[in-house]
């Protein structure tokens, strides 16, 4: 292997792992056990896992069709749409949260309608956490799936059509299975992004233990008074996410 590649690669790895090492070094190992046993930690962790998973499911439901439209559809202004999809990537998450409040909040056009029809107000609910996380994570899914779709020869879809498959059947039985690795990769990215989401969540969903306080929020607030607790929480979040992703990789992406 040429050193021009291996040296920067090693540097990149160090760059990524050094902050983690910092956390590990400063972690209060002696009191770790009792800190982890705190019910608020488990509560925040459970909420984080549940909301990130729901947000990923939501993104799959809406994001895969959107990726298909971008990759295959004959929509006018596709380039513009594609650029707009990446907006949540560029937008500071807090701004995204404010934007969600302005539209889906009690006084927002959509939020007010929802409230008048159903009496349900989205902000400060667990559902709001899912919405905020999905908003921020959706581009990751759409971009991965669109990239995967572009690598599939559209003639496979033609072959399916000549065999009598409707467009929906072509999509579910041919296109989707062929891009499965891309969908899994996108979903993993999406889930990881949702799990770490902070700005949009605290702005749109607020912070209430057990309902909207996810791990990143708990970490942020712990930093105010108890940096050691913040380190513990960060490590828990890190360990769980790395564990889940490594497990998934072994099961799903191993073949690719």
């Amino acid at each position: 292997m040429p050193w021009v590649l291996t040296v920067p690669a090693a540097l990149a790895l160090v760059f990524l792992l050094l902050p983690l090492a910092g956390l590990l070094v400063r972690a209060p190992w002696s009191t770790m056990g009792e800190r982890l046993a705190e019910p608020r930690v488990l509560e925040a962790l459970r909420l984080s896992l549940v909301t990130a998973t729901l947000a990923t499911a939501f993104c799959l439901l809406l994001g895969v069709p959107l990726a298909w439209v971008l990759a295959r559809g004959d929509v006018p202004g596709r380039r513009l749409v594609r650029a707009l999809v990446t907006v949540p990537l560029v937008l500071p998450p807090v701004v995204g949260g404010v934007a969600l409040l302005l539209v889906l909040g009690r006084n927002g056009p959509v939020g007010r309608l929802l409230y008048e029809v159903s009496g349900f107000s989205l902000p400060f609910t667990t559902a709001a956490v899912v919405v905020a996380e999905a908003f921020v994570a959706l581009p990751f899914l759409v971009i991965s799936v669109e990239g995967a779709l572009k690598t599939v020869d559209p003639r496979f879809e033609e072959a399916a059509a000549t065999l009598g498959a409707s467009r929906l059947r072509v999509f579910t039985r041919v296109t989707l299975p062929m891009v499965a690795p891309g969908v899994v990769a996108g979903a993993v990215l999406c889930w990881a992004r949702a799990l770490g989401e902070f700005g949009a969540t605290i702005t749109f969903a607020g912070n209430f233990p057990g309902r909207t306080q996810t791990m990143p929020l708990a970490v942020y607030l712990a930093l105010e008074t108890d940096p050691e607790a913040a380190i513990v929480l960060s490590l828990v979040l890190l360990a769980v996410s790395v564990g889940v992703l490594a497990g998934l990789r072994g099961r799903w992406a191993g073949a690719s």
């Binding site: 003639r155 033609e158 059509a161 000549t162 467009r167």
Partner: peptide, 14 residues
Amino acid sequence: AERRPIGMVFQDYL
């Protein structure tokens, strides 16, 4: 295509 009573063999089979 899906409603025509056809069968097709492609050059690279697909």
